[in-house]
């Protein structure tokens, strides 16, 4: 069974903007799924429709087989959502916020309190349970929203930019927790601008752009479509003359730093051997960007279209 199945989903807002142009999307049960796209691509609209915060114009959405048109409450019971924008009652205490959310899902108050303790501990917020939400840092507020979304143990967890503003240490512990949650059977859909996060966590990826799904693949398969990969190398001595190597374009960034653009059908061993032969001794190597970021940028970059758009507007 699919955790989420979307068919021909369209959304036209009241101001005439067509946010979704008929998208199809399937997310398998138990998957860790990345839903990516540039700002304004339609990701948040899709999530809004799934969680009933946005009315769709047409199309079909099913969550674990339940239609949002005919079984909305069954759909809602399956989903936990962490929205992109903060939506907390900032004047209320953390414990109340989480316990009340459990109550809105029909959980008796004693069980809700036990469960609130669990999720607040998991999000490292238990010590702050009696604080007013307004007094939390941005990262803590985001973790509180995750705790709130998990309190009713949803089968499908939707995270819309969950790690924005969260420091690296907490972010790593959140990754660990999300992996555990996914391994225990919770399907997770993640939207993020940290593409490294998506590449490391997710097994499937869909890219939305201008209201359409332009890519929808298993992550490994998708990453294999990358034609070249860029690396930055630091050298022991300054490079006097940039060597020429077959299958690899080399640019000098600084005296001690080169950028290598290696074609996918060439081995790094051959490149290193050729560099060594040219007298370049390598101290360190790192990826220029991560692979998903490279693909994402290739697919969604519209910088070359700007002059054309301008011309059309001028006309």
């Amino acid at each position: 069974m699919h955790a989420l199945s979307i068919r021909n989903l369209k959304k036209v807002y009241g101001n005439g903007i067509q946010a979704l142009k008929g998208i199809d999307l399937d997310v398998a049960e138990g998957d860790f799924f990345a839903l990516l796209g540039p700002n304004g691509a339609g990701k948040t609209t899709v999530i809004g429709i799934i969680t009933s915060l946005v009315n769709k114009t047409s199309g079909e959405v099913r969550v674990f087989g339940h239609s949002i048109d005919t079984e909305l409450n069954a759909v809602k019971a399956c989903i936990g959502v962490v929205p992109q924008e903060l939506n907390l009652n900032t004047f209320d205490r953390l414990m109340n916020i989480v316990v009340n959310q459990a109550g809105f899902y029909g959980m008796p108050v004693r069980r809700a309190r036990r469960r609130a303790q669990e999720v607040l501990e998991q999000m490292q917020l238990w010590d702050r349970r009696d604080d007013i939400a307004r007094n939390l840092s941005g990262g803590m507020k985001r973790r509180l929203m995750i705790a709130r979304a998990l309190v009713h143990s949803p089968r499908l967890l939707i995270l819309d930019e969950p790690t924005a503003g969260v420091d690296i240490e907490i972010r790593r512990s959140m990754y660990g927790y999300l992996r555990e949650l996914n391994e225990s059977g919770t399907t997770i859909i993640l939207t993020t601008h940290y593409l490294e996060e998506a590449e490391n966590l997710c097994r499937h990826v869909a890219i939305i752009d201008e209201g359409e799904v332009i890519q929808h693949h298993p992550m490994d398969e998708f990453l294999r479509t990358l034609k070249q990969q860029n690396y930055i190398v630091n050298t022991r001595e300054p490079v006097a003359e940039v060597p020429v190597i077959d299958g690899c374009l080399i640019y000098q960034r600084k005296d001690y730093e080169l950028e290598l653009a290696v074609q996918r059908d060439h081995d790094l061993n051959d490149v290193f051997a050729a560099l060594s032969e040219a007298g370049v001794r390598i101290l360190s190597l790192r990826n220029k960007t991560n692979r998903l970021e490279e693909l994402f940028f290739n697919l969604t970059d519209r910088s070359d279209q700007v002059p054309e758009e301008k011309t059309e507007m001028e006309e």
Partner: peptide, 9 residues
């Protein structure tokens, strides 16, 4: 935070 109620059944 009205969404707390709207996303719940």
């Amino acid at each position: 935070h009205l969404e707390e109620m709207l996303v719940a059944p």
